Computed example of a mutant assay.
Amino acid sequence: MTENIKLHTDQRVTTMTIARPEKRNAITQDMYAAMADALEDYAQSDAVRAFVITGAEDYFTSGNDLQDFAKGTRSDGVPPVIRFLTAISTCPKPLIAAVNGPAIGVGVTMLLHCDLIIAADTATFSTPFVQLGLVPEAASSLLLPATVGMAVANDMLLANRVLD
């Protein structure tokens, strides 16, 4: 497990903290692997009843670490990001997001797969896929309109409107 993903279990609740504040909690492939491992373990555990995802310090996550992604993925099986997106979208148990600051890109995408989202007053939500020349991942172009309505989703996905 990478030191940038912190796990803490207390009273049958595991909190997973994305902890890379020097990079605004940008997620690397190694971090995706650790998050996938944690979610897969949680799905199989009888000892843990709920799973909370949050970010360290002032950010939930600034999304993918684009420099890390530019290096490409390992060829030894399923890419870690796909393992994570599969684990979060198929988790059979409660997932809670505690959004403590900006959630950007995949930070918003992962929220769409959570059962409950608790947002601090400092939380913002941004999907800069078009500006980055990327396609929204993990069904976010389907799930976001179902969650916030078509007009708001189009504004977020196509014009990168930042919601607070």
Rank of each mutant, 00 (worst) to 15 (best):
Q44W: 01
K6H: 08
V99I: 15
I5P: 00
P145F: 06
I88K: 03
K6R: 14
F129E: 05
S75D: 13
V99K: 05
T109Y: 05
M1N: 14
N4C: 04
F60I: 08
A26T: 09
D37R: 07
T124M: 10
A26H: 10
T15Q: 04
A98H: 13
C91N: 08
A123D: 09
R49K: 15
G101F: 05
T147K: 06
G105W: 10
T86S: 13
M110F: 07
A139Y: 12
H113S: 00
A87G: 03
P136R: 04
A26P: 05
A153S: 13
M150N: 04
F69P: 02
G55V: 01
M110E: 14
V13L: 06
V152D: 01
L144M: 10
K93Y: 11
K6Q: 05
A36H: 01
P94E: 04
L132K: 11
T124I: 10
T61S: 13
G63R: 07
A70V: 03
R12F: 11
L132H: 07
A50N: 08
T147N: 05
R161A: 03
V78F: 03
I118F: 13
P21R: 12
F69K: 11
A34I: 06
P21S: 05
L163M: 15
Q44E: 09
N4W: 03
Q131K: 15
D115G: 14
R24N: 05
I104L: 06
M150Y: 07
A38T: 07
P145W: 05
M110A: 09
A103V: 03
V162F: 06
G77R: 10
L39G: 04
I96H: 14
A43K: 04
H8S: 12
P136I: 06
M110Q: 13
R83M: 05
K6A: 06
D41H: 07
R49G: 05
I96T: 11
P92H: 14
M110S: 08
T2N: 12
F60M: 03
P21Y: 12
I118A: 07
M110Y: 02
D164W: 14
A123M: 11
A33V: 02
N154G: 07
N64Y: 12
D46P: 02
T127W: 09
P94R: 06
M31A: 05
D115E: 12
N64M: 11
M1S: 14
G101H: 03
R24P: 01
P92D: 08
I18M: 02
T122F: 07
A36E: 01
G149F: 09
E57D: 11
S141A: 14
N100Q: 01
L142F: 11
E40S: 11
D68F: 08
V106A: 11
I96G: 00
V52P: 01
T127H: 11
A97R: 02
V78I: 15
G63K: 03
V148L: 05
D121T: 09
E40M: 10
T109R: 08
A138P: 09
S89N: 15
T61F: 00
V81Q: 07
S75C: 14
